[in-house]
Design a protein around this nucleic acid. Structure first.
Lengths: 187, 187
DNA sequence: ACAACTTCTTAACATAGGTCATTTATTCTG
DNA sequence: CAGAATAAATGACCTATGTTAAGAAGTTGT
């Protein structure tokens, strides 16, 4: 989710109100800031750094999503539903972020309905993003997914090890390696 | 999305307000009520019947989703974003539904902020549903998807031809047939 | 700059699902 | 109800990805 896209419409007062519930936080590379089984009561607007949400399946470590600068990171399923998270959210690099608490956000919305409106727009936008990914996993083959990723996160190979990208794409590292060399040759 | 889940909290006044923007509509089996390329400006609360959203890919007809009684149907990506729909929404049976217009809903939200709140909650819920499906397509094999479907739409085989279910699950009809007989035997 | 470790590549083989062809069931329609 | 059309099942074979294993390339710490 891109802050600029969604919140560019905030006026000066709203910006101050919104800032009043945000807290700047820093995490070291390797920190796990949301843990499986716990409720994700915060979301983070990333000023700097990269994060990865992941989970374990049959002992394997699977990447769910990558988060970079100028976007929000959390386990939104848990953040929205209040249910325990099925993911871990770890810092792939040192991270500086603005932390926003769900409770604070709900209270802000009660006091200032305009924030319910922004919340709705944000949730709708979040929906669009997962639907796009769902779509891609539904009908896209590995090559399609790979190209999509290169288009949308072109710098990802510079910042994330390939075996973590592979599970995000839903394949084994060997398959990613294969397609990389196959497509690389064709370029 | 289940109306009961989300809107059970509406009080009498709110119910009346909400009803004021809903219009009962009927469609015959076979009607296509949202068309690819057009903006989905309405969503439908299904009182009776079944619908399917689908699209064409390399000439193939692919099922995106099935909608049954007591849930909302639309192309929510288009409904939320205002962009042209990538899906068609067709009636698999005769349908009776309550039609809700996006514009009317937004106006209602402006006048009565409580509806922005319900809108946010609905969008968050929609997010949860796609994320669950995305998840299933990301790491679930055909058998897992099949069992999930049987659990969540147990009556689907009674109402939808198998070749339409297959593309929803992301496989060819032959594969669905195979797994059906394989799992059927194991029961 | 070396050693130890981690990640990536490559190859040979296995398997789930795709493709194509044929047969059997089901459903439409006159 | 018969015949035609459509849908589903089944089998033989093909292909992309998984599996396993080995080695090459890269990274990190000293």
């Amino acid at each position: 989710m891109n802050l600029d896209d969604i919140f560019s419409q905030l006026n000066q007062d709203e910006i101050l109100l919104f800032q009043s519930i945000m807290k700047e936080v820093s995490f070291e590379k390797g920190s796990v800031i949301i843990k499986e089984g716990q409720v994700a009561s915060n979301m983070y607007y990333i000023k700097n750094g990269a994060l990865r949400s992941f989970f374990y399946k049959y002992g394997e470590n699977i990447s769910d999503f990558f988060f970079f600068e100028n976007s929000f990171a959390s386990d939104f399923a848990s953040f929205y539903s209040g249910k325990p998270s099925s993911f871990n959210l770890e810092c792939l690099e040192d991270v500086v972020a603005l932390q926003i608490n769900r409770e604070d956000l709900l209270i802000l919305g009660e006091k200032h309905p305009i924030f319910e409106r922004y919340g709705r727009i944000a949730a709708e936008y979040a929906f669009l993003l997962v639907e796009e990914r769902m779509q891609l996993l539904h009908t896209g083959d590995l090559e399609t997914r790979f190209r999509w990723m290169m288009k949308n996160f072109p710098a990802i190979f510079m910042r994330v090890p390939q075996y973590q990208i592979a599970s995000y794409l839903g394949v084994k590292p060997e398959s990613l390696s294969r397609i990389k060399s196959r497509i690389g040759k064709a370029l």
